[in-house]
Write a protein that binds this DNA or RNA. Structure first.
Lengths: 249, 249
DNA sequence: TGGCTCGTTGCATCCTCTGCAACGGCCATT
DNA sequence: AATGGCCGTTGCAGAGGATGCAACGAGCCA
């Protein structure tokens, strides 16, 4: 809506691909160098881009701080976290927490017992929306027209033979998930990984987040994983209760 | 430099404090509501702000993704990570990796063996710059006028009695660190936590990052921690070598 | 029902952003 | 050492877009 801001913000994803110099930025934006320079300077003043020693620009440190504060404002995460840790300590598998926002599903927390390293590596990354258990849970709660609109806009990458093939299958799956109140991803994203998930609801009953437990099939079979469903649902319900209780609004 | 972009970007830290509605944003920016609306819409289109159900705005999901990609482009981190993990598995204590950027020192990686939970919680957060071992290492490598300029601009919070008291003491400490090639923080931030750190250098000898090992004094005394100095320095040097070797530029 | 607040829209005015051209520093080439 | 090319930077005039105003409309409460 605002041309200048629009152009300036377009620089950010561009730099996310890797450092770029003034000329490259100007070319990608299709504007004059002097224009790109002014935009970059403004971004720089706000700490969103950083000028490295070779004069090329890359994303700046303030982005970390902002993302940090953004995630801290998500109170679901704060409430859920201890529950996720507790569940993880019980069953040992990876536990995820995700939210839906603006046509994207993203992980906002993760607890992994076996491989603590690079734990943050997936937080903030968009989820494979057509197959992930948490994505199904979050989308299943939307209204029917919304679900249809989204389902038709999506791509359906065939990660594995068990990936959701198309919009029709996805919508059907969402209906199932909506009715049963939990979801699975059995090898739909990676052949050897299974997930089960449950929704977290606010005081009004709307799904505000979703959690899942993932495990490689070499460790537990899909059937064995499904036996964990009750404890996963109990955890999700406990989070829901605590979240609803505290909600002041 | 660009008024419109400047105003738009000023909205981000404002929303970082917490959700705000249109009127509040307009007031804080000192612009007309319609102007604020257009700026917010533009930010919204780029996913940087999100409009929650009560119509108030808060920081959006794309910030995560951007910060995520930004951190992945820091190749020091990628190279260093396996070394940090290895060191951690040897000695068991928390290992940090930090860089200096634009008057700030921030952690970009962390390996913690005993408490894997919320591992990302400090990544991206500004370091206690006047006391942390990594901060001393990174600042010590700057030119003398730069060091002085920064030292005089800083605040010197007295986290503990052992915190760096003022600019003079800090500059003196930086000189020591610069000469000995390693740094410590012995209870300067938290009474019971000690750290030792070593610099990571690029091909040109400049310090590009710093790493540290932290441990509570109830587990190891400061003297015991110092016995780990050789292995910490060896790790840092190994990272430096690998980083310098691969650098194509 | 009426009045209030808050978000939204269309529009004329004026500001500010834009692109141009020229400068200067840096590097490589001869 | 001199030259040419490349890239970042600056000042400026013009034009295009951002701004604030005023009016509308939706939701809420009394």
């Amino acid at each position: 809506m605002s041309q200048t801001v629009d152009r300036a913000l377009s620089i950010l994803p561009l730099l996310a691909e890797g450092p770029a110099d003034l000329g490259q930025v100007a070319e990608r934006l299709d504007v004059h160098k002097s224009t790109a320079l002014r935009l970059l300077r403004t971004l720089h003043e706000h700490g969103l881009v950083y000028r490295q020693s070779d004069q090329r620009y890359r994303l700046g440190a303030r982005l970390f701080a902002l993302a940090q504060e953004a995630v801290e404002n998500l109170d679901v995460r704060e409430i859920a976290h201890p529950h996720l840790v507790e569940l993880n300590s019980k069953i040992g598998h990876t536990v995820h927490l995700a939210v839906y926002e603006e046509n994207e599903v993203l992980y906002i927390d993760k607890v992994e017992s076996r491989y603590p390293v690079r734990m943050y590596s997936r937080i903030g990354k968009p989820v494979a929306i057509t197959v992930a258990a948490v994505a199904k849970l979050l989308l299943a709660d939307l209204s029917e027209p919304e679900r249809r609109a989204i389902a038709e806009k999506l791509d359906y990458p065939q990660y594995t033979p068990r990936s959701t093939p198309d919009a029709a299958a996805f919508l059907k799956e969402l209906t199932v998930v909506r009715e049963q109140g939990w979801a699975t991803d059995l090898g739909g994203h990676e052949e050897s990984i299974n997930c089960i998930g449950a929704p977290i609801r606010g005081a009004d009953g709307r799904v505000v987040a979703a959690m899942s437990v993932s495990a490689p099939s070499v460790v537990v079979t899909a059937d064995e994983l499904l036996t964990l469903l009750p404890v996963v649902r109990r955890t999700a319900d406990a989070i829901s209760r605590e979240y609803s209780g505290n909600a002041p609004t």
